[in-house]
Simulated scan of single mutants.
Amino acid sequence: MSPDFRGPEFRPEVGGRGDGFMRSWSQEHRTLGFEGRGNGPGMVEGPRPGIGPGNLTKRKFGDEEREGRDGFERQRQQLLQYGKADGNLGGMPGASRGYMGKGEEMRAAKYMRTDEVNVGKLKHNGIDQVALKKAFLHFVKIIYDDPNQKKKYLADGKQGSLKCIACKRSKDFSDMHGLIMHVYSSDHANLIVDHLGLHKAFCILMGWNYRTPPDNSKVYQFLSAEEAAANLSDLIIWPPLVIIHNTNTGKGREGRTEGLGNRAMDNYLRDLGFQGGKSKTLYSRDGHLGITLIKFGADQSGLKEAVRLAEYFEKEKRGRNGWAHIESLNLGKDDDDSNPNLVKVDEMTREKKRIFYGYLATITDMDKLDPDTRKKSVIQSRRDWMPPK
């Protein structure tokens, strides 16, 4: 889904939500909603054992509802941890499309009908869209730029009270729902755009639906793992970056980690046929970090080349998924040279060569960047520069 705030009247090719889009989206994505009609979530109309036709009764959440909520919570946590943009979040069980059962699918259809109705009522639609997007991109970077602050928001109040970073008011909020209700409903004349931009940033952080106006029913908190991942993967670091892992080569004489330098990586990419990228190797006090950033031009051609390089690694099964799998094995550093996933031995020369893994950098990768790159980078929408075909 596009992070654009615009409503159905806008062009579908740049993120508008026309009828055709909603039909295709509802067929391919699953989300969890509430059953029934009436005065609010949980109201069910129709005959039930011991209840006359047409009567309304309040449904209590039973095992099925709790199971659905638990499933969504697991998917959301996997998404927020791994930042995956496809159907399988880092190979984690239960995170793929088709996780939900038939009961959840029935609720999904009813929930999406609610979303269709509510999107036209979204408060963002009456605001200057250019200013709104600028505020959103500004605040989403602030949130991800501070790991401790991001972690506190994700804890949803379990690590202490939360504050609004748009108005910096002294009032504390006990959880993210209260904070999101504040930023969405705030009428401060000079800060409406900032608050609504922050509303979207918070919803994307939490994996919630920013297109549904928040209220105490908390329906807006239900969103498919696929769409939540798509919201994150659309937010790319700018100028475009490809992050390459496993560029270290072992320990030096003094015990410091060594690895490929900038010139060696530039030559490697040139030999593969990739142009325009400039390498930047990352170091710490202990030496080479095994990470090299490939920075491309801040324009459409630069982004296309960065995407082409990321797709090369993905086709070789050495993209984001591949590296997440390697990391999940918790391999010790001493085993690196004998690990066939990290080192390839030339059959003729017996020379050992590192196997590289790479992917396009998104908002979820901010903590992998060095301070200077992080400071000079901004966040952009990939679809603004490369609309879907």
Rank of each mutant, 00 (worst) to 15 (best):
W208L: 08
L223Q: 12
K110D: 08
E73A: 14
G38Y: 10
L56V: 13
L79Y: 06
F34N: 13
E65H: 05
K333C: 01
F173E: 09
R382L: 15
L342G: 01
L198V: 06
I291P: 00
R48V: 09
K60P: 00
R169S: 14
F313V: 07
V242L: 07
D175W: 08
I326M: 08
M1E: 06
G157P: 08
E65F: 06
A135N: 02
N118M: 14
D156E: 13
F72M: 14
K304H: 04
K280E: 15
K200L: 04
N267W: 02
G38W: 11
D372V: 13
S24I: 02
D172G: 15
H138P: 00
G252A: 11
R69W: 09
N246K: 02
P93Y: 01
E13W: 04
D19R: 07
L198G: 05
L309M: 13
L329S: 03
D335P: 00
R37T: 15
H325C: 00
M1V: 14
P3H: 03
F139R: 09
T247I: 06
R383G: 06
F21H: 13
K315A: 15
N341R: 11
P8T: 01
L223Y: 05
F61R: 07
A109T: 08
K295D: 11
M106Y: 04
P240F: 08
G252F: 10
M366T: 14
R76A: 12
S2Q: 00
K389R: 09
D156V: 11
K344W: 08
T212R: 11
V378A: 15
G255W: 05
Y184F: 13
R285H: 11
H325N: 05
R253E: 15
D128P: 01
M22P: 00
E226Q: 11
E45T: 12
Y283L: 10
D156N: 15
G255D: 09
V44C: 05
F139L: 01
D365R: 02
K352I: 03
L369N: 08
L303A: 05
Q75G: 13
E227P: 00
Q129D: 05
G287A: 08
E254N: 12
E327I: 08
L89K: 06
F72R: 10
R270H: 14
N190T: 13
K251A: 12
I243D: 03
G322A: 07
A324E: 10
V117I: 12
D271Q: 14
L235D: 05
T249R: 12
D334S: 14
K163M: 12
W25I: 03
K376S: 14
L179H: 10
G71T: 12
F274E: 08
F61H: 05
Q81A: 15
W238G: 03
S217K: 03
D372T: 09
P41Q: 11
F136T: 06
I363F: 03
N246L: 01
D266S: 14
A95T: 11
I192N: 03
T57I: 10
K200Q: 15
R17Y: 01
R320K: 15
Q77E: 14
